[in-house]
């Protein structure tokens, strides 16, 4: 509990009693830990390394992994400033300064991708975000343990299904030869192919996300709901508050910190949409509606070989995204939430 990393570990216990527990942990942990740390500092570095050699060896492979696949590639972003040609490599490609960035701002396709990204994330925030909350409230109100467990199992399952399968299943149900268009036809309504209609694409993506992850998203809200002090309900009921009053004055205020936290974190990742999900379906509707920032980078860079300009877009997206996430975390701290850095990539 009182590790040296306390501020960074996921410790957001935002509910009733949460902060108290954290503070308690600190008080309990500090005094005995301090002398121990003081002692070890007196030991020579070599002695400490000798003592920790097994631990350091165990850390080595993982550390190496993070360096090789997360930190070293950062240097590869240099090609955003190059007229990169794969056969010339990093060294011999021509340095073009900020030309790639200038090109980016003049590229209509980039603005289109940015717009599509924001439309989709905005729509997800509006339509997807409330669903797990409502679902959690519904689940929480089930009295029978058996039924609740069963429903939970059912709604968690889709989270573990990959996007390829989900898109395949959705085209089977909603696609041109699928069940829903046939149903519409039989009812005498105009045919509507949800998979290939560009205007519908943001909704399609959002519906798929809801199907996959709304159930999984309830976990966090269910946890928050169970942390609400049960005695409050009892006291309120004794004082004559009905179910709606209790929902409005106890439940919602009780889980509001978690809702605010997740909302902020979602705002922080507003430039990121599920890449795998979009890349599978972009060609169904064409780039005009289906291109987002990540797929722009992939199709223009790796597919079409415009390495430099695409990398510039990727770099700008990465930097703006990082600041958005950091800003979101700051904001979350401002609202009194602890240790949310580890949640930076949520959704």
């Amino acid at each position: 509990m009182s590790s040296n990393s306390q501020t960074l570990t996921p410790q957001a216990t935002p509910d009733v009693g949460g902060p108290a527990t954290v503070a308690e942990g600190r008080c309990r942990g500090r005094p005995p830990a301090a002398p121990a740390a003081g002692q070890s500092r007196k030991k020579s570095l070599m002695a400490r390394i000798r003592r920790d050699k097994v631990m350091l060896l165990l850390i080595a492979p993982g550390f190496l992994y993070f360096v090789v696949f997360h930190y070293v590639p950062l240097a590869g972003n240099i090609i955003a400033f190059l007229d990169y040609k794969p056969y010339l490599g990093f060294m011999d490609s021509v340095w073009v300064g900020l030309d790639n960035f200038a090109a980016m701002f003049q590229d209509g396709a980039f603005w289109e991708a940015l717009r599509n990204t924001l439309v989709i994330t905005g729509l997800q925030l509006a339509l997807f975000f409330p669903v797990p909350i409502c679902l959690a409230l519904l689940l929480n109100s089930i009295v029978s343990n058996k039924i609740r467990k069963f429903v939970q199992s059912v709604v968690y399952l889709p989270h573990f299904i990959g996007w390829v399968i989900i898109v395949a299943v959705f085209s089977e149900v909603l696609g041109a030869t699928g069940a829903v268009p046939h149903l519409l036809e039989n009812l005498g309504l105009p045919r509507f192919d949800a998979m290939t209609t560009p205007e519908f694409f943001p909704f399609l993506v959002t519906i798929q996300s809801i199907w996959k992850d709304a159930g999984w998203g309830t976990i966090i809200f269910l946890a928050a709901l169970m942390n609400v002090d049960q005695e409050l309900y009892e006291a309120a009921a004794v004082d004559g508050a009905n179910a709606r009053h209790r929902l409005w004055h106890i439940t919602l205020p009780g889980i509001m910190p978690v809702i605010v936290l997740l909302l902020i974190l979602n705002l922080g990742s507003i430039l990121s949409v599920g890449f795998e999900q979009i890349v599978l379906q972009r060609d169904n509707v064409g780039p005009g509606a289906g291109e987002v920032l990540d797929t722009y980078v992939y199709f223009h860079g790796i597919q079409d070989g415009q390495w430099g300009p695409a990398a510039a877009v990727g770099l700008v997206k990465g930097i703006v995204g990082l600041f958005l996430v950091l800003g979101a975390n700051k904001l979350a701290h401002f609202f009194g939430q602890e240790g949310v850095y580890s949640n930076g990539k949520s959704k």
Binding site: S5, L8, N77
Partner: peptide, 23 residues
């Protein structure tokens, strides 16, 4: 602390599709 931070910071950024591919 350094090792831990090295790991944790990877949650905040991704190197990007193209640099990862080149790596």
């Amino acid at each position: 602390r350094f090792f831990l931070m090295t790991a944790l910071f990877t949650m905040l950024f991704s190197p990007g599709i193209i640099p990862s591919f080149l790596m």
